[in-house]
Amino acid sequence: MFAHQVAAAQPLLIGLLLLWSSYGKVVRRDSAERTALPRLVGETRAAPAYHAVGAIEAVIALALLLPPAWTIEAVAAAVLAGGFTGYLIYAKIVVPDASCGCIGSSAKPVGRRAIGRTVLLLATALAATTADDGWWSIGSVAVVAVLVLEAAAFVMLSAELDRYWLLPLRRLRVEITHPLAGTATNDVPLAATQRRLLLSPAYRAVNGLLRSDIHDYWDDEDWRFVSYTARYDGRPATAVFAVPHQDSTPEAVRVAVVDETSGQTLYRPTLLATA
């Protein structure tokens, strides 16, 4: 008796799910471009096929939701769900980058959850084919509880809905105890040194001589040193910047252009460094 009631309740769930699914395809006119349809039915027929599927979903949904309750409605839903399952497995194998195109215009490729959802839909539709009554006849709290559980399963399998429950949950966890709370140190990241260097007058003074990106870097006491390959007067040289760890003013950055073979300093914009 209970099993019959649960079976009779299924059309409500399937109907609502199919209505939601058809909404994006028919009302919002989502694009079929990113789905596997262009590959399956051809570029020109992809959009009409996509919208036609939406229309079929809407018709079956309304038939399931409105009286009378005919077994043929549930059979149609089962055939549709079977088609979806086959289509998604095809998409995952043949066009792995294709979006699902299931519900909403998510760019996410077809995943295991999307396939799991159509399998669940197929199972509920098959259960519905065994029903003798309409969903409006259910009066038991237990049946409603089963429906709620099923709906929860659909929600958890819908990547489109993650931002309404999964992301807030993760956000809450990160707020309570941030997994990266221990990363703060007193060390100055190279990215900070590099940015300070790039914004400094010392860099502007020698930029025309630089030929490479950062060649080497090292720390010595309160300074970080950063060297670049350079050319000075037509010969190879090295430009070396000294960036203080503590002083963050752009003018505190110093630079010298050095001939490494002779060890001599070729160029040093001293006035900028002390300004």
Partner: peptide
């Protein structure tokens, strides 16, 4: 060598 040059401890050519 480069450390000393950048801090201005070496002479210019």
């Amino acid at each position: 060598l480069l450390t000393r040059a950048a801090l201005g401890a070496t002479g210019l050519v």
